[in-house]
Design a protein around this nucleic acid. Structure first.
Lengths: 198, 198
DNA sequence: TATAAAAACGAACATACGTTCTTTTATTTT
DNA sequence: AAAATAAAAGAACGTATGTTCGTTTTTATA
């Protein structure tokens, strides 16, 4: 056999991306073999190389795409909010929603950082830093306006991010807890953490 | 050559454990090769099998040991506390301290869960559940006594654990932030999250 | 001190990996 | 319709992996 009827580059690449995402999420980058990936897509191992340059490049593509989308979505979600309290609520809601919806991408984006080549890793770490900075800016604005109290803005930001991101390691969208309730509870937790009198 | 002068089973096993811990922490279980591990310990690859049964068993040993120690230490730390507020503070301080001191074990204990054989994984998941239950019990006691308010105890517990555990992914013991300050800040964050009027 | 056990070496094993290359067939372009 | 390109197959590559085995030397036991 050779080229399959109905085969199209764009469709196959999309299938490779989706299957790769799932396999890396399930087993990790190192544990995912290209043979397994090929089988899942319905190809021979060698045929993958008509669409990807290398296994490493596939990983970077997945993470990089995710980070770009994350940043763009965040900036859209924060648009129009000037009040620090409202901004923080918007950030919390966005972060939770996005991290629940893109559970796999988020997980890979942090767990497989170490599997990236140094140059690739640096790019991703830079993007992540930019994301953290958005939260820091909100907290700083709130401290300046007197709405928030935070002993150390960066510590508070990391604590908040850790708490929110941790959610998607156990949250089950089809489970007992409603998503809106989850967001409400965490908005409150986050706000209380930076507003209560000390 | 053959058996080295001064070689002792216990010492070599300890060296293998320590080197394995470090290598798995740095590169992940799948990415750690037994040849690399052997080189780090100063052995030939085959000689490892005088001390471990298999690569998988080494991973399980490391994680299992960690979980057992974690539980014992927690119960010691909670001993004598009856007041829910004090218990929660003690839990927070213990969790942070332990997770900072045993950064590597903690990381491996969650990141490499998926690298465990199903039977091994089940054992670890059970132990982890027991740990979470300790926190839930404290929160429930606090709700019953009127000290805490929590819409959903399990959600609150997971949020707290996620926040606290997330710390050890970025906290640098030699860095800008003092450990005692870190504990103080988080005790407050945690308490605020479950005590403030809604 | 003789004997058994432990701990190391070093070679070898089957297997699996990421990747390359040639060939064949389908699709697109001219 | 012919030519060029794209996408697949399938075999092969060198290399690395976890593990086993027979041998040798050191330590512990009797």
């Amino acid at each position: 056999m050779s080229r399959t009827a109905g085969s199209s580059g764009a469709k196959t690449l999309a299938a490779i991306r989706e299957a790769g995402l799932q396999l890396i999420y399930e087993h990790g980058y190192e544990a995912m073999t290209l043979r397994r990936l090929a089988r899942k897509v319905g190809l021979q191992p060698g045929s993958l190389y008509n669409h990807i340059a290398t296994k490493q490049e596939l990983l970077f593509d997945l993470i990089h795409n995710h980070m770009i989308t994350l940043m763009e979505s965040l900036d859209k979600a924060l648009e129009g909010h000037t009040n620090p309290v409202e901004s923080l609520k918007a950030f919390t809601a966005f972060h939770l929603t996005y991290h629940i919806e893109r559970k796999r991408e988020v997980f890979i984006g942090s767990a497989e950082l170490r599997s990236l080549d140094p140059e690739n890793r640096e790019i991703i770490v830079g993007l992540r830093r930019t994301y953290e900075d958005r939260l820091c800016a909100i907290l700083e604005a709130g401290v300046a306006s007197g709405d928030f109290i935070a002993e150390d803005v960066r510590v508070a930001a990391y604590a908040i991010l850790a708490m929110l991101t941790g959610i998607c390691t156990w949250y089950d969208p089809g489970g007992r807890i409603d998503r809106k309730a989850l967001i409400r509870i965490h908005e409150q937790l986050v706000l209380d953490g930076v507003t209560k009198n000390r």
